[in-house]
Simulated assay, not measured.
Amino acid sequence: MKWLPPYRVELELHGEDLGDFIKNSAYDLLISERFAEAFRAEGLTGLEGFHPVEVVRVRRRGKRALKPITVPRYYVVSSRFGRAAVDLVLNRVRTHRTPTCPECRSGGISAINGFVLEPETWSGEDIFRPRGMPGEIVVTERFKSFVERHALTNMVLTPTEQFVWDPGKLGPAPLST
């Protein structure tokens, strides 16, 4: 279901500081004001919304920090559904059924051991959700450099060819010929 206003959240703090990026759901992301301002200033693309969020509570987890918590201003954004599509021949994604929809390309993913996007399908967004990889967000090298340059926190960026999600230890899918 789509998250509608008013945008209110309770956060859990693990460690000393709240991050610049919080994945709220498969579709909604929370980004700090610092992230939002830098994203807009550099002209990056692929996020939409930028609606203010009210943080109603912050719960601490783990060790109790001695310093007071600084709660940044957050915005809820969504990453765009891109035109980029997972390459059905070169990907290393195991599915338990063949994708029947050429648009969404989703076929019941059992394991991911790296994936490749089909050439000529990407339309230039810096951050997007590709067809055939539900719930995953892909970013460009430009976005990666942006994150490093601004020292944005709470993000782990993994190259697509090294991305692994394999709960059943099935291993990579064989390459199609």
Rank of each mutant, 00 (worst) to 15 (best):
M1K: 10
M1D: 13
W3H: 15
P5T: 10
Y7S: 07
R8L: 10
V9Q: 04
E12N: 13
H14W: 09
G15M: 01
E16R: 15
E16A: 15
G19C: 13
D20C: 08
F21E: 01
I22W: 02
I22H: 00
I22E: 03
K23H: 07
S25H: 12
D28Y: 14
L29N: 07
I31T: 01
S32W: 00
R34N: 09
A36I: 00
E37W: 05
A41E: 12
A41M: 07
L44T: 04
G46F: 02
G46N: 03
E48T: 11
G49R: 11
G49F: 03
F50R: 10
F50S: 09
H51D: 15
H51T: 11
V58N: 00
R59G: 05
R59Y: 09
R60T: 13
R60S: 14
R61S: 14
G62D: 11
K63F: 14
A65G: 15
P68L: 06
P68H: 03
P68S: 07
I69K: 00
V76C: 10
V77H: 02
S78F: 08
R80V: 15
A85R: 11
V86G: 05
V86P: 04
V89L: 14
L90V: 00
R94F: 03
H96M: 07
H96G: 03
R97H: 08
R97K: 10
C101H: 07
C101W: 06
R105W: 01
S106L: 06
S106T: 14
S106D: 13
G107Y: 00
G107H: 05
G108A: 03
I109W: 00
S110L: 12
I112K: 02
N113L: 03
G114V: 02
E120S: 10
T121L: 03
S123H: 13
S123R: 13
E125D: 12
E125W: 13
D126N: 09
D126R: 02
I127W: 01
P130E: 07
R131S: 08
R131F: 04
R131M: 08
G135Q: 07
I137C: 08
V147T: 02
E148K: 15
R149F: 04
H150A: 02
H150I: 01
A151R: 14
V156D: 12
L157V: 03
T158A: 05
T158P: 09
T158E: 06
P159N: 06
Q162Y: 07
V164Q: 08
W165E: 11
D166C: 07
G168Q: 14
K169W: 11
K169R: 14
G171N: 04
A173R: 15
A173N: 10
L175A: 12
L175K: 13
S176A: 08
